Simulated scan of single mutants.
Amino acid sequence: MPLWGGIEAGGTKFICGVGTKPNDIRAEIRIPTTTPQETIPQVIDFFHQQEKLEGTLEGIGIGSFGPLDPNPASPTFGYLKHTPKHNWVDFDFVGAIRREFKIPIGFDTDVNAAVLGEYRWGNAQGLDTFIYITVGTGIGGGGMVNGKLIHGLLHPEMGHIFIPHNLTEDPFTGCCPFHNDCLEGLASGLAIEKRWGKKATSLPPEHPAWLLEANYLALGLVNFVLTLSPQKIIMGGGVMNQKQLFPLVRSQVQKHLSSYLKVPEILNEIEDYILPPKLGNKAGLMGAFALAEQAAP
């Protein structure tokens, strides 16, 4: 089988791997996200080493934090755009990898990569319209409509939608550097930490933070349900590892929809409608493999 390289480029770390599918990952490494000058040479060195050990790569897929330019017809295809990570603004990501490896390079957002991973091997197999939301330090979203990843003008930025914010009940003004109290500004892991003065992982399950968090996430999901009519909503990211959060989010989605959509998936089967990724924390890396495969002739 063809051997693929994958890069899941996150805001805090890069996860790089070589393999063919979920049960055939030959090697994997985590590299801190610092600056392009520090991080990218380590990525390149990893793939060079693996080619010596495992054989020639047929392609490399990159799923990256953004905003970014995923349009192959654009003169800035493969570039990171005005990302909050200032050292990476206008960085030619695809070009940096392509100069070292004369092979096809697939490129998309990290969340769209996770979408593709779940579509190929996870909880979205057999579907053609679904979304993937990741809730971690920030909030990102990606999706597929009619069997194609969502792009359009650029790519989805689902974490930056605006949702109702009652300042009397929640006086926290938000932490998004661009929009203050957008969904990411109110419900990201960073927002939880800034609002409560503690990291999300240190808050007990009964803490009031979780009902507030579930309410904000549910408000976002309701907007996506009513706009895109997804067949499933897959939710990943570190914050969603809190086991008490999924039941709260599901019940709040039902509450906010107020029986408007009388479909069994939401009324009676919501545990299988809003659910974690089958691939777990491998969804992004597997999606990067799939991006590499798509880019290959």
Rank of each mutant, 00 (worst) to 15 (best):
T76P: 04
F77P: 00
F77H: 11
F77Q: 03
Y79G: 10
L80I: 13
T83A: 09
T83M: 12
T83D: 14
P84F: 12
P84Q: 14
P84I: 12
H86M: 10
H86G: 07
H86E: 04
N87P: 03
W88A: 11
W88H: 15
V89Y: 11
D90P: 00
F93G: 09
G95P: 11
I97G: 05
R99G: 15
F101D: 01
K102V: 04
I105T: 05
F107S: 02
V115R: 04
V115W: 12
G117P: 09
E118A: 09
W121F: 14
N123D: 00
A124C: 13
I131W: 11
T134D: 03
G136V: 01
G138E: 09
G140T: 02
G142C: 07
G143S: 07
V145E: 06
V145Q: 11
N146D: 09
N146V: 12
G147V: 14
G147Q: 13
I150W: 05
H151F: 08
H151V: 11
L153E: 14
L154N: 10
H155M: 10
E157H: 03
H160W: 01
H160P: 08
I161A: 07
F162S: 13
F162P: 01
F162K: 14
P164A: 13
H165V: 05
T168L: 12
D170P: 02
D170L: 05
D170K: 03
P171L: 13
F172L: 03
C176N: 10
H179A: 14
H179Y: 12
N180V: 09
D181T: 09
D181M: 12
C182I: 05
L183I: 01
L183G: 04
G185N: 08
G185T: 11
G185Q: 06
L186H: 04
G189V: 00
E193D: 02
E193K: 15
K194F: 14
K194V: 06
R195L: 08
R195N: 07
R195S: 13
G197D: 01
K198A: 10
T201A: 14
S202D: 06
L203I: 04
P204L: 15
P204G: 14
P208D: 08
W210Y: 06
A214I: 03
A214V: 02
N215Q: 07
N215P: 02
Y216T: 04
Y216I: 01
L217C: 03
